[in-house]
Design a protein around this nucleic acid. Sequence first.
DNA 1: GTTCCGCATGAATCGATAG
DNA 2: ACTATCGATTCATGCGGAA
Lengths: 279, 279
Amino acid sequence: MALNLILGDCKDKLKCLPDCSVDLIFTSPPYADQRKTTYGGISTDKYVEWFLPISKELLRVLKPTGTFVLNIKEKVVESERSTYVMELIIEMRKQGWLWTEEFIWHKKNSFPGKWSNRFRDAWERLLQFNKTKQFNMYQDAVRVPVGTWAKSRLKNLSEIDKIRDGAKNGSGFGKNVSNWIGRETVYPTNVLHLATECHNKNHSAAFPDELPEWFVKLFTEEGDTVLDPFLGSGTTAYVANKMGRNAIGIEVLEEYFDIAKTRIETSLLTLFEPQIQYE
Amino acid sequence: MALNLILGDCKDKLKCLPDCSVDLIFTSPPYADQRKTTYGGISTDKYVEWFLPISKELLRVLKPTGTFVLNIKEKVVESERSTYVMELIIEMRKQGWLWTEEFIWHKKNSFPGKWSNRFRDAWERLLQFNKTKQFNMYQDAVRVPVGTWAKSRLKNLSEIDKIRDGAKNGSGFGKNVSNWIGRETVYPTNVLHLATECHNKNHSAAFPDELPEWFVKLFTEEGDTVLDPFLGSGTTAYVANKMGRNAIGIEVLEEYFDIAKTRIETSLLTLFEPQIQYE
DNA sequence: GTTCCGCATGAATCGATAG
DNA sequence: ACTATCGATTCATGCGGAA
C-alpha cells in the first residue's frame, strides 16, 4: 500500500493533490486555542475563517463517492460553549458540502475535574460531510455482535456497574471483533463508545486507533485512498495502511511529522514483513 | 405541591406567567415537520422563526438563577441533517440566552430500522441555556456510583475493613467513613445513558421519566417551580410534582391535555394518599 | 503464565493572582 | 479594566512491576 507523508501546511500542500482522488478524509484539526505551544493556537473567533480555505481544497480532492469525517469539539469560553463549530457547519454547506450526519464519540475516560457550573465533558463530534448523496458506505464491515456481548460482559460487571451503565449497553466495538464472526450481528448506531489512549509518552494520540479504524471500514474498501490533512501523531495514516488502504498524511510541524513517520514505518515493517527480521 | 395545567398555545399562555418565577424549564418541543396533523407542521425553514417568540417569553419567566433545558434533535431532510437547531442556538444567544452546555442523551434502545446511507439515530441533544452565569446547580443530587471494575472494587472492600476496625476501637471512625463515601460516588459527565420507554402503551412519551428527573434533581430543590410549555403526555409535570416541586404545564391539544391531566392526577393520588383508598 | 496493584496521564475549566 | 498565567480539582485507563 502506498504511504505518502507530506511535511508542510495542508492549506498549501493540498493543492498538489489531484481532483477527485480521495475516498475518505478523516481528520482531527487542532481545536481552537488548544495545543497552543505546538500549533499556532487558532483563536475561537478566527476559527471558521481559518478552516474554510482548507475545507474548500478538501472538497476538491474528494471523490464524488467519498466522505469527509471531521472530529471536533467546541471549547468553553467564559462559561459558555462557543458556537464556532455550528458556524463552521453552516458555512461549509454554503461551500457545497452536504452535512449528512453527526456521530457522537462517547469518551469513556474523559478528562477529570470539578467545577461549580458544569460536569466533565465526555463526548466529541464526528461530523460526516459528503460531496454527493451517492457516497459509498459499507455497513456490513462494522456490524457488531448482539446479545452475547452483554452476557459475557455481565460476569465482569459489578453490581455498581450494572446500576451505573446498564447491562444492555451492547455497543461493542472492541478489538476482538473477529471472535464474533459467525455469531449474530447487528448494525451499530451513530454513538461510538471508546476510551482515549493515554500513557503513551512517545506519541500521545488525540484519538484511539479504533476511531479512524471504524470509519475506514465503513467508508472505504481495500485499495482505496485515505487522507488526513492534520496528521499529528499519525494514527489515521497508520491505521489506513495497516488495513490495506493507501494513505496520505500532511503535517505542518516537523517534530510531529518525524514522530509519525518513524512510528508508521516501523510499525508497518513489523506488521507486514516479520520474516525479514528473522532471515 | 401545586399543579397548574393550562390548555392553550404556550405562545399566548406564557404571557400569563409572572416575570422571574420559574426555576427550571424542561421541554421537548414538537420537532420540525413532525406531528404535522397536530401542531400544524412547523416546516424546517420556519422553525427558528416559530420558536424565537416562545423562547423570548421563557427568558422572561425564568428566574436569574434558573435553567432552561431543551430536548431537541434535527431531522433528516433530503439525506442531510437540517441546521435549524444550530441556527436556533445562535439566534437564542442574540436574544440574551447563555448557551452553557450541551448534554447528550444516549438512547440505549434506539428506534429500529435500516437505511442504505445512515445508521440508527441513538442520541438527542439536551441544550442547557441560562439567563446568568450564577445559576443554581445541585451537583451532589445526581452523583453516581464510582465506575470501578473488579480490581478497585477489592480496594473498596479493604476500605470497609478499615472502617470496621475503626469502629471497634471507637476512634477515627468518622474520618474513614468520609473517605469511603468520597470514593463510592463520583460526579457524572455530560453524557446520559437512558433507554426510551417502551412499556407504557397508553401514552407514548417522547422521553423516559428519568430524563426530566435527572435535570429536576440537578437544577432545582424541593418547593421550586418547574415549567414545561409543551407538556405532551405530561411526563415533566408528573415527575416534578412527584419530586415535591411545583409544576406548570401548557399543552395546546385538548386530546393530549386530557390524557396528561388524567394521568398526572391519578398517579399522584395513589402516590401521596394511598391511605384514603383504604379508609 | 496469570492476576493484582500502584501510578502517571490526559484536546479541561474555573477563579484567583499577577503584569 | 483587561489579558495572561497558574494552581486546584478529578477519574477512567493501561502500563509495568510484584505476588
